[in-house]
Every structure is written in structure tokens, then in C-alpha cells.
């Protein structure tokens, strides 16, 4: 239990998927203009990550990993090179399914999250989390916790960024630096703050 908690804290703060591994920056920049939309996308990412990470774990360890097909009579088969194409297909399919389920059962939630869901399929944070999960040999439970933690970390980062951008909207930024350049510098300062957590051990 302590290990899982430590993994969660680690993936939210110290190994923040956005500020330490630079994943999902495209939508981080594009969607952090207002707090409402940032929160909406943040929740969608948490949700999709918590679902896709364990599903990809099952598929990888059940079908693709070296020797995983031993039950079917192919103990020497190693399909792990197919993980990129499988993961991206699984993510796209899950995003589509989630969108349809939400649309059917919760129109209210769909109204707030619906527009963000298609964006998520190509958010590198989602694919990145699945690939990290394979590379770091997480167990099934760990993959759920890692997915939820990465999503929460991403959401924390984008919502804070939206809040900061709201505060600096009328700041007098030198011409040429305003816009993208300025956002990157704010992100750098945020990354420095998140690094302070690296002293924490649980």
C-alpha cells in the first residue's frame, strides 16, 4: 500500500508527466487560456489515462510481451515491436467509446468534456504513460495507480498554468516574447517549483 501511495505521489509531483517528461505540451499550451476549459481537459485526461493504462497493460502482457502467447502454442513469439501501433489503436478506440458512453448516459458531463475527448487521442501524455508503464515493468495494480497519478499531475499542471496565465494577462511582456515564448518561460518556472518535491521520500 505504501509503495502504491509513493508511486502515486511520485507520478503526480516528482516525475510529473508534463513538467519533468514534457509530454502533452501541445494541448498544455493550446488549452490553458481559461481555467474552465483547462479543468475540463484535465478531468478528461485523468479519466482516459486511468482506463487506458491498465487496458494496455492487459493487452501487452496477455498478447504482445515475449512469451505471452505460450498458451496458444507459441512460447518463443515476441510481438513487443507491435506495441506502438496497438497502443495508439487502443487509445483511439477507448477515447471513442468513452465519448459515446458519456454522450449516452451523462449529457451534462458530455457538454463539458465532449469537445476535449477527440483531442486526447493524439495527446502524447496518454501514449507516453502506456509506454513508460511497459518500460518500467509495472504490475497491473501499479499501472492503474501510475495512470491515475500521471493524469492528476497533468491536470494539476494545466490548471495552475491556466490560473497563472489569467493573472499575467495584462502584464507588459516585451514584443516577440508574448504568447508562446512567455508561456514556455512560465512553464520553466513551474518545472523548477515541481522539482522541489524531489526531496520527498515516502
Amino acid at each position: 500500500m505504501g509503495d502504491l501511495l509513493s508511486l502515486f505521489i511520485n507520478s503526480v509531483f516528482i516525475g510529473n508527466i508534463l513538467l519533468a517528461y514534457f509530454l502533452g505540451i501541445c494541448s498544455f499550451i493550446a488549452v490553458s487560456k481559461t481555467i474552465e476549459t483547462a479543468t475540463g481537459l484535465g478531468f478528461a485526461v485523468v479519466f482516459v489515462l486511468t482506463v487506458t493504462s491498465p487496458v494496455n497493460w492487459l493487452i501487452y502482457h496477455g498478447l504482445l510481451a515475449p512469451g505471452a502467447l505460450a498458451w496458444a502454442g507459441y512460447p518463443g513469439l515476441d510481438l513487443s515491436f507491435l506495441k506502438f501501433i496497438t497502443f495508439i489503436a487502443v487509445i483511439a478506440a477507448i477515447v471513442q467509446a468513452v465519448e459515446m458512453v458519456i454522450d449516452r448516459y451523462s449529457p451534462l458531463l458530455y457538454a463539458s468534456l465532449g469537445v476535449f475527448l477527440p483531442l486526447i487521442a493524439v495527446n502524447c501524455a496518454i501514449l507516453g504513460t502506456s509506454l513508460f508503464m511497459v518500460e518500467r515493468n509495472h504490475t497491473f495494480i501499479e499501472s492503474v495507480v501510475f495512470g491515475a497519478g500521471s493524469g492528476t499531475g497533468w491536470m494539476l499542471a494545466i490548471v495552475s498554468m491556466a490560473a497563472i496565465r489569467k493573472k499575467v494577462r495584462y502584464a507588459d511582456v516585451p514584443a516577440g516574447l508574448d504568447g508562446f515564448g512567455f508561456v514556455m518561460i512560465i512553464a520553466g518556472l513551474m518545472a523548477m517549483t515541481f522539482m522541489m518535491f524531489s526531496g520527498i521520500t515516502l
Binding site: 513538467l19 519533468a20 517528461y21 514534457f22 516585451p174 514584443a175 516577440g176 516574447l177 508562446f180 515564448g181 512567455f182 508561456v183 514556455m184 518561460i185 512553464a187 520553466g188 518556472l189 518545472a191 523548477m192 522539482m195
Partner: peptide, 19 residues
């Protein structure tokens, strides 16, 4: 070498390019 450096450099490069 750490993450923040990358953000700062790319921000400054964009500034340079826009100028």
C-alpha cells in the same frame, strides 16, 4: 540539464526568432 532549462531555452529562442 534538468527540465526547466529546456523550457527557458525554447522560450528565449522563440523570442529571438520573433525579433
Amino acid at each position: 540539464v534538468l527540465a526547466p532549462g529546456a523550457f527557458f531555452i525554447i522560450g528565449l529562442l522563440v523570442w529571438l526568432k520573433n525579433s
